[in-house]
């Protein structure tokens, strides 16, 4: 007699359900986000929401323009990239190329350990050490500004970028290096022209995950960015990124109020940004693979 369920089909359905559950959660989150956020646009036009520079959600005559928050996010993210990409990729190169086996055995786990430090610790460090120092050094009204936020967030993202980039570098086959050296290339030429490009798709993935971490980071920016909802004109002005706006105001916004809906709408914006970002990354890395003739 045939058994009702073969072992394989049980496995297949269990993993199928698990994978499906992920999708359902994701869909649920998206649904709630849009359900709570979209009603805002009955009261505030999408254009006013995106292009308005005034964010006065609790005024008598409230305004919900997020342009300055968006600008804050972009400034901080761009600044953090300037910190974490050179540091992360540079240290990956050091660990992979220059460090000996013993150094590598210590450094790699150490860097990965750094990735586990809670963001509040970074935020606290930025608030009590970096910000006052910067304030005294530059004689600015406050050290809690885009610069400090970028610096701290950038350093937070270094372990992610470094660890993943190092993985990518170590996947580059030794035969590529040998081929290059045997042609009379120096170690440096080999690194820049052969190893780095070969690890390119892995390193860009590392960079993208680093950016994602920075863009979505909340606690730290809340603590060190200064919180002023104005479009910054320099790195040394306080800013108020999208994430910290949500974190700071969600507690006081009455459920279902316009303010509440506006915060959800901000989350929608963040969601969309990250989404676009990941799609772009996927397209880029697929193009790259095609160029290399690697089929998936």
């Amino acid at each position: 007699m045939k058994r009702l369920f073969s072992k394989e089909s049980v496995y297949a359905s269990v993993f199928g359900i698990l994978a499906f559950a992920c999708l359902i959660f994701l869909a649920g989150i998206t649904l709630v986000l849009f359900k709570e956020g979209l009603p805002l646009f009955a009261k505030v036009s999408l254009w006013d929401f995106l292009s308005g520079t005034a964010w006065y959600p609790t005024h008598e005559d409230p305004e919900f323009g997020i342009l300055s928050l968006l600008a804050g996010s972009l400034w901080v993210t761009a600044g953090a990239m300037l910190v974490c990409l050179p540091l992360g990729i540079g240290s990956a190169l050091y660990i992979n190329e220059i460090a000996g086996n013993t150094q590598k055995a210590v450094l790699k786990p150490l860097v990965e350990l750094l990735a586990g430090i809670p963001s509040i610790v970074f935020g606290f460090f930025g608030m009590v050490v970096v910000a006052p120092f910067l304030q005294r050094l530059l004689h600015i009204p406050t050290g809690l500004c885009a610069f400090t936020a970028s610096l701290i967030l950038g350093i937070m993202a270094v372990p992610t970028v470094c660890s993943l980039s190092e993985d990518a570098l170590s996947y580059v086959p030794a035969s590529y290096r040998e081929a290059s050296l045997a042609l009379g290339a120096t170690r440096w030429e080999t690194l820049i022209k052969v190893v780095l490009p070969a690890a390119g798709s892995g390193i860009s993935t590392a960079a993208i995950l680093g950016v994602s971490r920075v863009m979505g980071e909340t606690m730290t920016v809340l603590m060190v960015s200064g919180g002023a909802a104005i479009i910054p004109h320099s790195f040394f002005q306080p800013v108020r990124p999208l994430t910290s706006t949500i974190a700071a105001e969600m507690g006081e916004a009455a459920v279902g109020s316009t303010h509440y809906q506006a915060l959800f709408a901000i989350a929608m914006v963040l969601f969309t940004l990250t989404f676009i970002f990941n799609i772009a990354a996927e397209i880029l890395s697929r193009r790259y693979r095609l160029k290399l003739g690697i089929q998936r």
Partner: peptide, 19 residues
Amino acid sequence: VDIRRRVGMVFQKPNPFPK
């Protein structure tokens, strides 16, 4: 570097660059 330019090498497993 000069030695390797004058003495070239072809390896056991073909190793073209991914270019």
